[in-house]
Design a protein around this nucleic acid. Structure first.
Lengths: 107, 107
DNA sequence: GGCACGTGCTAGTTTTTTCTTGCAGGTGAA
DNA sequence: TTCACCTGCAAGAAAAAACTAGCACGTGCC
């Protein structure tokens, strides 16, 4: 289920998804949740870099984070995808554009 | 009608749409075609800046350009939207991510 | 000619994003 | 204690995107 987004929200979501690393993160998490160190190994990128991308994905509301204690008592941060459906058409873009807040000169 | 995109194509489309100016361009052209100088005035941005954004929109296949001679013989470049429908879900992103070409270390 | 309108292009600046490096803390097990 | 694993954060470098300013060309009209 997906309500309509404001122009700024939509822009943020699109900007967030428009990145190869973040697309791969979504793809990896679609298979099942995972914690960041394991995910970094799976994707072959450094952990700080992955944390940067995860933060952006979370800020856009596309993934969620949950702390969990592993069997041996370690604090693991698990990430999972948030189900979403966004349909893009010239009309939907036009509709969203009406609520953009970016300041510029008046007409 | 919209066939499925490669990961790189999708990333380019999303990156192109994720910009306030370009969203407004799509919105303006959805009302009807226009030429660049008039469009720049309507949007309140400079012509070189608009040309930059139009070039990106055209490169992503979201708008088309057509030259036309006005009544008084001036060469005008008219832009129009290309109808498109892109549906974004975790699954569609995951599918597209499999065809990304960005090089990185193997598993 | 000079002005108003259309087009294109390029060089350089500013801003944003991406990425690396390196350090801090914690736990449990040998 | 030392090692292996987990987490967080921040400073600085590198790369990409956005934007400005200014020039070129063309036309028709006064």
């Amino acid at each position: 289920m997906e309500m309509s987004h404001s122009g700024d929200e939509l822009a943020r979501i699109l900007a967030t998804l428009a990145n190869p690393h973040r697309m791969r993160v979504i793809a990896a998490l679609a298979h099942g949740r995972n914690y960041v160190s394991a995910l970094a190994r799976e994707l072959g990128i450094s952990r700080p870099l992955l944390q940067l991308h995860l933060a952006k994905l979370e800020a856009a509301g596309l993934v969620t984070a949950a702390f969990e204690l592993s069997a041996d008592g370690k604090a693991m941060k698990y990430y999972d995808t948030v189900p979403f459906t966004v349909t893009l058409t010239p009309q939907s873009i036009a509709l969203a554009a009406r609520t953009l807040t970016t300041v510029e000169g008046d007409s």
